[in-house]
Write a protein that binds this DNA or RNA. Sequence first.
DNA 1: GCCAACGTTGGC
DNA 2: GCCAACGTTGGC
Length: 150
Amino acid sequence: MQYWLMKSEPQVFSIDDLERQGRSPWEGVRNYQARNFMRDGMKVGDQAFLYHSSCDVPGVAGVMEVARAAYPDPTQFDRRSPYYDEASTRESPRWLLVDVAFSRRFRDVVPLERLRAERALAGMQLLRRGNRLSVMPVTAAEWRAVLKLA
DNA sequence: GCCAACGTTGGC
DNA sequence: GCCAACGTTGGC
């Protein structure tokens, strides 16, 4: 089993939204590296942190589980969607998504600031300078270290 | 294949 | 709102 971290702006899709819905397609990933992690890495049953970005308190908000392996993201074909990609075709879809299922909402978000202060997380990809990836792997040791802070 | 211009991400 | 960092685009 593998561990992941996936970013979302809570104004767009938050841990509360996922808790309410129970399960959801993870729409809108438009970065090749992030797509490749979903396509080549993610398996049903993998665990992922939901990270809130671009908000008052950026940080890890809870835990979800991969509920369905990668398949084409329908929003790339939807002209009215902000994620529409006119260059993508149904014969050869450019963008994929996975379905995620709610597991747990932390009582409080574990703030980015707190993650940065944690020695065990010094090598975490999320914390590297200039990191903008919205989907990335997390090691088992990092996973445990973040859970301890929740 | 290089690289400048441009767009996006995301913390602050 | 600012700006650093980075990815993508497109001319050459």
